[in-house]
Design a protein around this nucleic acid. Structure first.
Lengths: 349, 349
DNA sequence: CTGAAAGCGCTTACAG
DNA sequence: CTGAAAGCGCTTACAG
């Protein structure tokens, strides 16, 4: 059976195409009687508007793009699920892309979706700093919201200004970090390892600075904060932890920069035969329903996934509809420290 | 800056629209020289074809739909990631939807995507049995591949026949289940609990039958196999385990039907104060990088996610391109038992 | 309150 | 080897 088009509905209802279009879009110009007839006919024939035709005509696709770094990371998976759910509630579909933390793949997606008019706007978790496709999006004043990681926009001019004006949605770990540092200090830890996001990214530097501030705020010396950079993936967490352990005066506690790296840290510790928290304390990043089944249950800095998703969708719809952006606070919901059992008293050196 | 259209490229290159279209699609009718000129011009202007216009004209969107039950389930998240990666390699985008295990939501997505020509075909993890939108897809001979869960197609006629002819991609747990039953029997377990998928679904019954067969094959009496149905979610795993524990003669081992339900089982056990595997042995379903960090590391039936994703993409592209479907074996790759430490000797009753 | 007509940006027979 | 023209299925001024 062929697809039923608007024309078929019009014919069956004995009215013109325009009337059907107007009626189905709820225009007040159509009489209640005609509208009812048309709605029933459309339902009976199983009419579903052709998305391509509508998009071509209206220049709006009613679909949003979402580019994340790694779907296998439960944080992104959960975020994507929430974003999708909220977007659908507003009448939008979402096209999900996984950049696999690769700038080139990210750029390919970005230009295909944006310049090719596949979507109305995109929500992007940038892999790193500025890239050609992000710059191009700025040049064409495309709709973009940055999620989870801010980027550094170098230079001046309209493009840079535009890019800098784009909303950035991400969690604020400051309070949670303060709580984490307080916990660690109270437990007697004086030397802390940090498995940080890439140091050549803004987020990497920010995160590192925030951790530094929290730790030094608790009287820990800057020289006693050992930072190893990872790349957001599990393997890098293992390697970073390995390096931290190589240190002659190794840390008695570690803070991981994201979920997969925390897993990597834990795996490396197990491989090295160290017990958590007896030999070393660990604080992870991102929460998950299974973290309390870990041995030991993992203390972690939980991101407010739901609020992040809500702010992201709100921000992108504001861009698309030209309405007001969420407040700066809404764009940056706070993380919280979930205390379980992976932190213990610092072992005597 | 306005979007650059095909017309702009044509004008800049001094040729007609048709020539540009032909050249960029690699038609041999265009001379090498003209093609080169056009390609350079397109690149210089940053031309990206408008997806909607192309879709309207060609009736092909080059995007595929993927409807899963729950992105927060790491198995689906990983599967979605792999599917997307493979699809992109073949020139397709994927639109991801989360039915949240709700038939109505699933149906809304299905008809919007399929009837509305948003995608060329959809990969569907059905929430349950037949639904109106699936039937409609069968009536219109829409392209569909079923993933992870088969459905029962009742009745006769062209629609039913068509639906029954659609490819179904899912893993075969038989061998892994046999290994699991052997392991349990060798450990002295004679009474086994099963937290199964919904019993009113085909997959639920199949899974239960397969477990029965494996267990009885090891000499366990059918009356010693206690089945409690869940709904694929963590909460149902907790409730099912609770019921299993209520049994006066409770099982000494449990097999969970999917990842979230396995988490639920473990949580309920912990709440009940039972130690794994001393008091009770547990076998989960689906693998994840963090399962060996559990207390105790979880023995599980691992699905071949990569092969599943590959078969799914291959099958859907075969449908779209009209080429040959993967072989039945490829559509049903085998699961394997990953032995860790959650199974131990059966406690004396 | 409703209809006829134009046009969104492509692709593809059809001419030449 | 290249161009002029039609048309995919909608929406939206413009008439009436």
């Amino acid at each position: 059976m062929a697809r039923v088009r608007l024309k078929d509905v019009a014919q069956a209802a004995g009215v013109s195409d325009a009337t059907v279009s107007l009626a189905l879009s709820g225009s007040p110009r159509i009489s209640a009687k005609t509208r009812k007839l048309i709605e029933e006919t459309a339902l009976r024939l199983g009419y579903q508007p052709n998305a391509a035709a509508r998009a071509l005509r209206t220049e709006a696709t009613n679909t949003l793009g979402l580019i994340i770094g790694d779907v296998a990371n439960p944080f992104f998976a959960e975020l994507a699920g929430e974003v999708e759910r909220l977007a659908v509630r507003e009448g939008y579909s979402v096209m999900l892309c996984d950049s696999d933390e690769d700038s080139d793949r990210q750029d390919a997606y970005l230009s295909k979706m944006l310049a090719g008019s596949q979507v109305d706007a995109v929500m992007l978790v940038p892999t790193a700093a500025m890239t050609p496709a992000i710059r191009a999006a700025g040049q064409d004043a495309r709709r973009l919201v940055l999620v989870d990681r801010p980027i550094e926009v170098p230079g001046r001019g309209a493009t840079a200004d535009y890019l800098r004006s784009l909303p950035v949605v991400r969690s604020d770990p400051k309070d949670a970090l303060r709580d984490a540092a307080t916990l660690l200090a109270a437990l007697g830890h004086r030397r802390v390892g940090v498995v940080a996001p890439p140091v050549n990214t803004l987020i990497g530097r920010e995160r590192r600075d925030a951790i530094h501030a929290a730790l030094t705020g608790q009287g820990i010396a800057p020289t006693d904060i050992l930072v190893e950079a990872g790349d957001f993936r599990q393997g890098s967490g293992e390697r970073a932890m390995e390096k931290l352990l190589d240190n002659p005066d190794r840390p008695t506690a570690v803070i991981a920069g994201d979920g997969p790296m925390a897993i990597g840290v834990l795996k490396e510790l197990r491989r090295a035969g160290l017990r958590v928290p007896t030999d070393i304390s660990v604080i992870g990043f991102d929460d998950a329903p299974w973290l309390d089944l870990f041995d030991p249950p993992l203390t972690t800095i939980a991101q407010p996934v739901h609020q992040l998703a809500a702010a992201t969708v709100e921000a992108i719809l504001a861009l698309v509809r030209g309405t007001k952006l969420p407040s700066p606070q809404a764009l940056q919901p706070a993380c919280s420290l979930v205390v379980r059992s992976s932190c213990g008293t610092a072992p005597d050196q």
